[in-house]
């Protein structure tokens, strides 16, 4: 178990399985808002879904309608449990506020490097902490 400090942006307390994108995400284009499936064929997560998982990614990028894709994920009941970015920019922040999905960023470490797919993540924004329980192999 490893515990890191994070900056809360949209509050919440969640626990779930991590899915980690090594590359920045354009929610518009890279994610299907109806299913949560990753559409970017260059991403190693291609074909997997972020629904009901803790989605870890370096930062947002691309078209600004990405915020509505995040909102759409929530309206279609396929939203991630939480969003964890190294750096949340305003596409992701606006989307998370509208969709009311917990969002944290600014860990001192690169979250995409220290968290692996399948790790169990606990987020407590009140305590500003993120716990990583490594996947058992």
């Amino acid at each position: 178990m490893r515990i890191i400090k994070i900056r809360p942006i949209v509050d919440g307390k969640v626990e779930g399985v991590a899915i980690v994108s090594p590359s920045p995400i354009s929610f518009f284009g890279d994610i299907d808002s109806r299913s949560g499936v990753i559409l970017d064929s260059k991403n190693p997560l291609f074909g997997e879904t972020i629904a009901n998982k803790v989605f870890i990614f370096p930062e947002g990028r691309g078209s600004t309608v990405g915020s509505y894709v995040i909102y759409g994920l929530a309206k279609n009941h396929v939203s991630p449990l939480a969003l964890v970015a190294n750096k949340a920019e305003n596409i992701v922040i606006a989307g998370a506020i509208l969709a009311e999905i917990p969002l944290v960023d600014q860990s001192e470490e690169d979250v995409t490097a220290i968290i692996k797919d399948g790790d169990i993540i606990q987020i407590d924004t009140e305590k500003q902490l993120l716990k990583i329980k490594e996947k058992e192999i």
Partner: peptide, 9 residues
């Protein structure tokens, strides 16, 4: 201008 998100604009 910053890159406003669609909802923030």
């Amino acid at each position: 201008t910053n890159r406003e998100g669609a909802p923030s604009s």
